[in-house]
Design a protein around this nucleic acid. Structure first.
Length: 320
DNA sequence: CGATGTCAAGGAATC
DNA sequence: GATTCCTTGACATCG
């Protein structure tokens, strides 16, 4: 093959999936019983142990745990749940040791209710507490610096400059351990890559590049997708493999007229498709200039990962 | 047993 | 100011 025909490398190390396993029935991701039934982290740990072995069995080395594995651990009026991480210290250490044996890169991604930059002090304080607990879980699992807690910038409140200021102030209130675990992800309508890079410059926070969010909210980096991705990856320290989020849009979603943003009959592009489009993924991946891990956010979860892996192999073999 | 409602939590947009 | 949507997985309840 002539040199000029040699394809640009695709520097992907691991592909990962989030939370739910679809490839095998019965693998739960967390103890989701109601508080009246006394759900507990130790039950979630048993579930996770099974999921980790499943991942190993299909040669998956990256997995996002449910952010609800320690139920009600930060609930303001249910202190009986607040000691779960300490109560499970030994179990978490054992589970974490297994993850290291399997070479499984782990992460946590708290829900939309975690808003560090909320102008409501109670919300901001509660969000910080939640991030601290998520950090404590990964610390108790004795995971290295590649195991991260992912958070969004939060709300815009009609004044993004002030909202970013509040985020950076809240950041200073977090523990050193939490600050080194957390990575900030660009979202689909408020904080673009430009904003997360600004947060990085002001706080040192790592950033997560979300490909679909960037397409919906490119900010001033419109048309510079590869630049945005590589700049985001560059916020990770040397020796720590960065990661990014990738998904394909769901184009057959029901029509949406809300907010005046989408025309009647137009698909809501922010929704995730069941699977990943391999050609789009391949073209994007070849613009990356640094080895990365990719968290896939597809509705078909692990099944989407397995299909993408196979599709990429087919593309590489030019059997398509 | 299958279908459907509900869950601790916020924010944004609409009325 | 109140209401609805966004979005997730699995429990809880209902028929």
């Amino acid at each position: 093959m002539p040199l000029t025909d040699r394809p640009t490398p695709r520097p992907i190390r691991h592909l990962g999936f989030a939370v739910k396993v679809l490839g095998t029935p019965g693998l739960k991701s967390n103890d989701a019983r109601r508080w009246q039934s006394g759900p507990h982290l130790r039950v979630s740990i048993e579930y996770l142990a099974r999921i980790f072995e499943y991942c190993d069995g299909i040669d998956v080395r990256m997995y996002r745990m449910s952010s609800d594995i320690a139920p009600y651990a930060t609930h303001p009026t249910m202190p009986q749940f607040h000691d779960q991480v300490r109560e499970c210290a030994d179990d978490l250490a054992a589970l974490g040791a297994r993850a290291r044996e399997l070479g499984l890169r782990l992460s946590l991604h708290p829900s939309q209710y975690i808003v560090l930059n909320s102008p409501n002090p109670a919300v901001a304080r509660g969000s910080a507490r939640d991030l601290e607990v998520q950090t404590e879980i990964l610390d108790a699992m004795e995971q290295g610096p590649e195991a991260t807690v992912i958070v969004h910038g939060g709300g815009g409140y009609g004044d993004k400059v002030a909202a970013l200021d509040r985020f950076c102030r809240a950041w200073e209130g977090l523990s050193e351990r939490a600050r080194s675990r957390i990575a900030v992800e660009n979202d689909e309508d408020i904080f673009s890559v430009e904003d997360t890079l600004g947060i990085h410059r002001r706080t040192g926070a790592k950033t997560i590049f979300d490909h679909q969010h960037h397409r919906l909210n490119p900010g001033t980096w419109s048309g510079r997708e590869a630049d945005a991705a590589n700049a985001s990856l560059a916020t990770w320290p040397d020796g720590v493999t960065p990661k990014l989020h990738y998904s394909s849009p769901r184009l057959d979603a029901r029509e949406v007229t809300r907010g005046g943003k989408a025309k009647p009959g137009a698909p809501l592009l922010s929704q995730h498709a069941d699977y990943i489009d391999p050609w789009t993924f391949d073209a994007f991946a070849r613009t990356l200039r640094r080895p990365v891990d990719v968290m896939l956010e597809a509705k078909a979860k692990d099944l989407a990962l397995l299909r993408l892996r196979k599709d990429l192999a087919m593309l590489d073999a030019k059997i398509v």
